[in-house]
């Protein structure tokens, strides 16, 4: 399957990176990673891209990493449709001190707007 993973630097996006790489190795998926501007976290996009490239190479996958500028959710949906991805994968949210699942703003936008399937990694 042709999979697009979006990461913006939040904790749940790193968890999604690890799990999606594991899954891609098992299933033989073609994996592309998009670096997103997450308004709720602020790591440098180039550092994020480097981290993703390293993780993909370490797993023996092609380091296909793109930095998307601008509104994260819409850029990701647009990129997936343009490039023919069949699945968008995102971090599935953080948990509050009480243990409530709190979905990130990017995931909300993508869920409501994507025309391809979306997986949220918990």
């Amino acid at each position: 399957m042709n999979v697009l993973l979006g990461i913006g630097g939040s904790e749940d996006s790193f968890r999604a990176l690890d799990k999606t790489i594991d899954r891609a190795q098992e299933a033989g998926d073609s994996l592309t990673v998009a670096i997103l501007e997450n308004p709720d976290s602020d790591p440098d996009p180039d550092d994020l891209a480097e981290r993703a490239r390293t993780a993909l190479e370490d797993a023996g996958l092609t380091p296909d990493v793109h930095v998307l500028e601008g509104h994260a959710g819409s850029q990701l949906v647009d990129f997936a449709e343009r490039e023919g991805h069949e699945l968008i994968v995102l971090g599935g949210g953080e948990t509050s001190p009480l243990g409530k699942v709190q979905l990130g703003s990017i995931a909300e936008f993508v869920l409501l707007n994507a025309t391809v399937s979306v997986t949220l990694v918990r």
Binding site: L98, K100, Q102
Partner: peptide, 11 residues
Amino acid sequence: DPEDRAQGIPP
């Protein structure tokens, strides 16, 4: 009641 769960809690 599982119907009354919200945002993943209570387990």
